[in-house]
Computed example of a mutant assay.
Amino acid sequence: MIDGLVGGRLFGDAQVRTGQNGKRFVTCKVRAATNDGDTIFVNVIAFDDDVQRGLLALGDADSVALSGALTPKVWTDKNGLVKPAMDMVAHKMLAAYGSRDDEG
């Protein structure tokens, strides 16, 4: 596990989901720019209620910064090119509209 901070723009809208145990969580994608000008997609999942509310208050292309546990991975695009990506379990959030975290 890597603790990290990711800043970027929401790609699409955040979605509410329900786990098999009945617990609610929120998922979204964040599009982040790399130093070389490429883009990396971060697949975000949030279990914390405050972070969930914050993500759901945002819309497509809104700026957001999230901290949490990162897991690097790769995916293959429709042309067969392998590209980097990240999975994140978000614990805290900062957006242009204020901060959201698990400490209230």
Results as ranks from 00 to 15, higher is better:
residue 66 L to P: 03
residue 7 G to H: 10
residue 68 G to Q: 07
residue 50 D to S: 15
residue 17 R to H: 09
residue 42 V to R: 00
residue 34 T to N: 13
residue 56 L to N: 07
residue 52 Q to H: 07
residue 68 G to P: 08
residue 3 D to C: 10
residue 52 Q to T: 07
residue 77 D to E: 08
residue 85 A to P: 00
residue 83 K to H: 10
residue 79 N to S: 11
residue 90 A to W: 01
residue 41 F to C: 01
residue 57 A to Q: 13
residue 32 A to M: 11
residue 73 K to V: 00
residue 17 R to D: 06
residue 63 S to E: 12
residue 49 D to K: 15
residue 96 A to C: 09
residue 83 K to V: 03
residue 46 A to P: 04
residue 1 M to L: 12
residue 78 K to V: 11
residue 101 D to C: 07
residue 77 D to K: 03
residue 33 A to T: 06
residue 83 K to P: 00
residue 79 N to E: 13
residue 86 M to G: 00
residue 10 L to S: 00
residue 102 D to G: 13
residue 49 D to I: 14
residue 71 T to G: 01
residue 34 T to A: 12
residue 93 M to A: 12
residue 101 D to M: 10
residue 6 V to H: 05
residue 20 Q to M: 02
residue 13 D to C: 10
residue 60 D to W: 03
residue 3 D to Q: 15
residue 38 D to K: 13
residue 19 G to N: 07
residue 65 A to D: 11
residue 26 V to T: 08
residue 86 M to R: 09
residue 88 M to R: 02
residue 4 G to L: 10
residue 34 T to Y: 05
residue 51 V to K: 04
residue 95 A to C: 14
residue 72 P to D: 08
residue 5 L to P: 05
residue 26 V to L: 06
residue 61 A to R: 15
residue 27 T to M: 02
residue 65 A to Q: 14
residue 57 A to P: 00
residue 80 G to A: 07
residue 104 G to C: 04
residue 74 V to W: 13
residue 99 S to A: 15
residue 13 D to G: 01
residue 58 L to E: 09
residue 59 G to N: 14
residue 93 M to V: 07
